[in-house]
């Protein structure tokens, strides 16, 4: 019985993995279809909750959501099955693509294509930054944190870990002062 659930979870999340293009927001409708409608493993509201927590905890959102649902259904083993399910298609697909591209990387066509694609990636990352900015920068302190980290990350070789830890401390300190007033 338990074994069957593990298998079902793995397959359901592997399906979500295969059918999600681009991650993030693209995944929510797929999760709704597979997890809420097809299996009834969670309600619409629970899914939204897990998704929100997945966004504000470290790691890949899709993976976090999968872990959450697996854990809720049957503990850590089910969480592991769901998590491995969601990453399995990526592992296979990317490995095949990487192996193929390796052999053609020096061709003029491939080099020109990727030079064009890099420009597109620039624009896509910029769009992601703008979208995230609207949610994260909500007042003057958050604006200052954003500007400080941006400048330091561009002009120094400090590890990103330093920024995350410092920003977390800054968040606690700033909000604590606000609460005292």
């Amino acid at each position: 019985m338990k074994l069957k659930l593990l298998g079902n979870l793995f397959v359901a999340f592997a399906k979500v993995g295969v059918l999600t293009f681009g991650g993030g927001y693209a995944m929510l409708p797929m999760l709704q279809r597979e997890i809420v409608d097809a299996h009834g493993w969670a309600t619409e509201e629970e899914l939204a909750d897990y998704y929100a927590i997945g966004q504000c905890t470290p790691g890949v959102i899709a993976v976090n959501t999968a872990t959450f649902i697996g854990q809720k259904l049957g503990g850590p083993l089910c969480a592991a099955a769901a998590t491995l399910g969601v990453v399995f298609p990526s592992l296979v697909i990317i490995t095949v693509i990487a192996a193929v591209l390796q052999n053609f990387a020096q061709l003029a066509v491939v080099r020109n294509a990727f030079a064009g694609i890099r420009v597109c990636v620039c624009a896509l990352i910029l769009n992601a930054v703008v979208k995230l900015w609207k949610k994260a920068v909500v007042d003057l302190p958050t604006l200052l944190i954003f500007l400080a980290v941006l400048a330091l990350a561009v002009f120094t070789k400090l590890s990103p870990v330093v920024f995350v830890v410092a920003a977390a401390l800054a968040g606690v300190a700033l909000k604590a002062r606000e609460a005292k007033r």
Binding site: I125, V129, T142, A167, G171, V172, L174
Partner: peptide, 16 residues
């Protein structure tokens, strides 16, 4: 509070 601080930092790093 922790995420209040981390969120804008994360955006700053992606911006960089």
């Amino acid at each position: 509070r922790v995420f209040y601080g981390i969120r804008p930092a994360s955006v700053g790093m992606i911006g960089a």
